[in-house]
C-alpha cells in the first residue's frame, strides 16, 4: 500500500472509530444531562412560586422563558420568569416568581452569575440582597435605593436595597427584572400566556 493511501486509511479508521465511540457515549449520557437541567429549572420554579406541583413552559425566547407554576389541580399559582441579562462581568440568569396578576413578586433566585466574589457576587446572598425581593409590589417598575438604606423598614414597597460597593451588579439585576416584567405583562395582555389544555394534569 502506498504511503498516501495508508495515511488516508489510518486517519479514516481512527476518525470513524472515535466517532462511533463518541456517539454511543453521547447517547448514553444525553438523557441524564437533559434531566439535570430540567431538575435545576424545576427546583427554581418551586422555590419562587411556592406550592407548585407541576409547571408548564408558556413562552420561550432567546433570553426569556416564562413558566406557569400550577397546584395539584392544575390551577395556575403564578409565573416563574427565567431571564438572562447583562451583569458587571458576565450575564446573570435568574428565576423570578410572581403572582398571577403580575403585581407582586414572591421571590428571586439567582441561577447563574460570574460577578466579583465578595462584591457583586453578593446578589446570590439572602441577607444582603435576595431578601429585599421577597413580597415586593411590582405593579409599577421597581427602583433601587441609593445609597443603601441601613434597615429594610426604610424601603418603600417597590424599592430594592443596593449592595454596598456593588451598585452596578444590583442595578443590572434590577434592570433585567423590570424589562422582563414589562415583556411578560405585554405577553399576558396579548393572551399569549395560556395554559395548554384546561386543568392539564
Amino acid at each position: 500500500m502506498s504511503l498516501s493511501s495508508r495515511m488516508a486509511v489510518v486517519l479514516t479508521t481512527v476518525g470513524v472509530l472515535a466517532g462511533a465511540f463518541l456517539s454511543s457515549i453521547g447517547h448514553l449520557t444525553k438523557e441524564r444531562i437533559a434531566l439535570n437541567k430540567q431538575r435545576e429549572i424545576e427546583k427554581a420554579i418551586i422555590q419562587v412560586v411556592p406550592g407548585t406541583s407541576s409547571n408548564q413552559s408558556l413562552y420561550e425566547e432567546k433570553k426569556l422563558t416564562i413558566y406557569g407554576g400550577m397546584d395539584e389541580e392544575g390551577a395556575l399559582l403564578g409565573y416563574a420568569i427565567h431571564a438572562t441579562g447583562a451583569g458587571f462581568q458576565d450575564e446573570i440568569t435568574f428565576m423570578l416568581g410572581t403572582n398571577i396578576d403580575l403585581t407582586r413578586i414572591n421571590s428571586l433566585a439567582i441561577l447563574e452569575q460570574k460577578e466579583t466574589p465578595g462584591l457583586g457576587a453578593k446578589i446570590t446572598n439572602m441577607e444582603s440582597f435576595l431578601r429585599y425581593w421577597e413580597n415586593k409590589d411590582c405593579s409599577q417598575p421597581l427602583s433601587l435605593r441609593k445609597p443603601a438604606a441601613s434597615s429594610p423598614e426604610e424601603l418603600s414597597p417597590s424599592e430594592i436595597n443596593t449592595i454596598t460597593g456593588a451598585t452596578i451588579s444590583s442595578e443590572a439585576v434590577l434592570n433585567t427584572v423590570n424589562s422582563s416584567l414589562v415583556k411578560t405583562r405585554e405577553l399576558k395582555e396579548d393572551g399569549k400566556l395560556k395554559l395548554e389544555g384546561k386543568n392539564a394534569r
Binding site: 465578595g118 462584591l119 445609597p147 443603601a148 438604606a149 441601613s150 454596598t164 460597593g165
Partner: peptide
C-alpha cells in the same frame, strides 16, 4: 478586600447621619 477599600468615613469635622459616606 474590595469592601474595606471602598468604605469611607467623613473627615473629623463633618457630622453626618447616613450609614455610608461617599
Amino acid at each position: 478586600f474590595p469592601v474595606a477599600m471602598t468604605t469611607w468615613i467623613p473627615p473629623a469635622m463633618i457630622k453626618v447621619n447616613t450609614a455610608t459616606f461617599a
